[in-house]
Amino acid sequence: MSKPTLPAAPTPTILPVFVFLAIGALIPLVLESGFYIRLAMLVWTYAVLCMGFNLLYGFAGQISLGQPAFYSLGAYAYAMLQIKLGWSPAVALGGSLAFVAVVSLLIGLPLLRLRTHYLAMATLAFMLVENGVANRWIDFTGGQSGVEVPALKWAGEEIGRTGIYYTVLGLAAVVLLLHDFLIRSHLGRGMQAIRDDETAAQALGVRVDLYKLRVLVLSSVMAAIAGICFGITSLRVDPSLSEFHVLVSLLTIVVMGGLGTRFGPIIGSVIVVALPQVLTGFGRFETAIYGACILVFLIFLPHGLSGLVERKFQWRADRATADAKRRKQVLKEEVS
């Protein structure tokens, strides 16, 4: 009798991540039109913004409606550090991320004591404050018209659209890898535990408050990276980055893509960026259809499009089953 082969534990592979990145890397080679490359950059920008929110709300269960504020702050800081302080783009990138990290820490320390609706409302208030200041502090932020973001340069020359695209893709790749690592590792498990039952997580030695704060800071930094992507793509930052429609896009993406899934943010971003291109035919109905889409997904596809393929957390369960089978096999062999 042949020895039965041990079932391989279906460790969730990192392969899909590389597939997404490979597709991303091929886009400029396939699509020549500048318009489509701009759309692709917008997809990555939104995907980065939404991955942060996905970790925070989809996994750790802490809602923040203030993500557009961090998105906007990241972009403003990146521009200002270059314009006002003359920092180089790379240093300004680090500086603006550090700045947003500190701001989110200061916001998170008091606000994370709040729960559910109160947390949602308070973070929304933070977004309105940020937007109010961006609009009104005209001497510094340029008010409605915003500020110009210096173009990226390489060896003294402005880099072209393809160069900008690969810069955005590079930033997105870092966030995507981090996002995926967190979800698949014990840290993702810990975040889900906090979402499901804080008291039990605490009893098991998880420092719940610290975890929440860290996830908030991380997701804010991811939002800031998205803001910087937006800045280097559009070369302008204005208060519209923290306006309500950004929040609506963000929620639409995570709901349609699938909240708390591995690839929901990317899939959702592709759809939300592509949808208006398709919907232009609907003209005045566009906004209403946007709302209807969110609603239909919430009711009929609560795990989003990504959930259709991924089955939310199914890989965790499959892996556990396979672990158990393998162990049984090992025991059987030891006995015989």
Binding site: Q192, A193, R195, D196, D197, A200, G260, F313, A317, A320
Partner: peptide, 10 residues
Amino acid sequence: RLFRGLSVLD
């Protein structure tokens, strides 16, 4: 107080 979103093993 088990974590409802996680499998038994997790």
